[in-house]
Amino acid sequence: MWEDPSHTSEDSRVDPASWAAQHSVPAGRIGPVGPGIAPEQWPRDPTTGMPMMHVITLWLPEHFRRRGPDLPGFALFQGAGEAFMPLPDNPDPADPFVIDLHHHRPHPQQILLTDILDLYFAAIWLTAEELTRIGSPPADRRRPGEHNHDGLPRHAWNHDDPPLLVRLTPRRHDPNAGIAPVERDATTDTPYLSTWGDGDHHDWANKLQWWNHLGGTIFPSQWIPDGLTPYYLDLIELPGMNIGTGTLQYDLESNVFDWACG
């Protein structure tokens, strides 16, 4: 995970991977272990009712804390997806899964996100205490043989990839640091530099590609979403995610959200 700062120092011009190993500190986690929110606040997929899969929890650098200093980070979750059957229109009121679903109370900082396929994701802005603590989804109260959404894509009850720490380090020598990414053409008036030249990526762009990062040069699988600001998160598919070996963008300022397959 790479931050894209607006200022870099000359003495840091080393291989990014070796610099990260020497200087980075844990700033978040991916995998099934979520932030310190109450089980009843864990995001639920509006279609299936299943608890969403935790993607990433991340402390943000100060200039990326776009909801103010009291919310220094956020968590991203992915819904169950199009492959699963929705809840019935008239669910059994005695169903323990349905009873538990009635106890769901969305976190006050939850933002429900939808993609072009009308599938659901959720972002939750978090306090320092919530970022520090560990949280778990609600207990699985499904009756045997019911609501068995246990294939792919993942949800909170079948996301069994090992938890991993995230390390946040400066992303060195990005010419687009602090600039909103936009598609360039002959009429575009922007300081944002395209990654392409002579039919291939520029050398400087090749050195930045294939890293999850905050801000700077974007590497979308298909196109740059409209409305991005300098304060966006760009994710290559993380363990358990279902974005078709693609990339995902979520803007911490404008709330623009998009992903695309390669």
Rank of each mutant, 00 (worst) to 15 (best):
R141T: 05
L164K: 11
H102M: 06
T195I: 13
I116H: 11
L228E: 04
R67F: 10
E40N: 14
H54E: 07
D161L: 13
I218D: 00
W59P: 05
A80N: 05
R142T: 00
R143M: 11
D234K: 12
R29F: 03
T187K: 15
I111S: 07
G244C: 06
L165Q: 12
P220L: 01
S221F: 09
P16N: 08
S24T: 03
L117C: 08
A75Y: 07
L76M: 12
P16A: 10
C261V: 11
N158V: 06
I111M: 08
G199R: 09
D150P: 04
I37A: 07
L152A: 12
D100C: 07
P96I: 02
H23S: 08
R105T: 03
R66T: 13
V256Q: 12
G246A: 04
P170R: 14
H104Y: 02
A205R: 03
N176R: 12
M53P: 00
G31A: 04
D185G: 08
S6P: 10
L112M: 11
T169W: 15
S12H: 14
S254I: 06
E237Q: 10
T217K: 08
P43L: 04
A123L: 07
V25L: 15
H7K: 15
P16W: 14
S18Y: 09
P239G: 01
G216A: 07
T187N: 15
V166N: 10
L214N: 03
E82W: 11
G227V: 01
A21S: 09
P43S: 12
L119Q: 11
P108I: 02
D95N: 01
L87D: 00
L87G: 01
L193Q: 12
V25R: 15
L252I: 08
Y120G: 05
L87I: 00
Y232D: 01
V166A: 14
A27G: 09
A139E: 14
P230T: 00
P170G: 07
A139P: 08
Y232L: 00
Y232W: 04
E82D: 13
Q41K: 10
L60P: 02
G73P: 13
A94R: 15
V25D: 14
I236C: 13
T8M: 08
N148W: 13
V14E: 15
A17N: 12
L119V: 03
Y232P: 00
S136D: 13
P137D: 02
D89K: 15
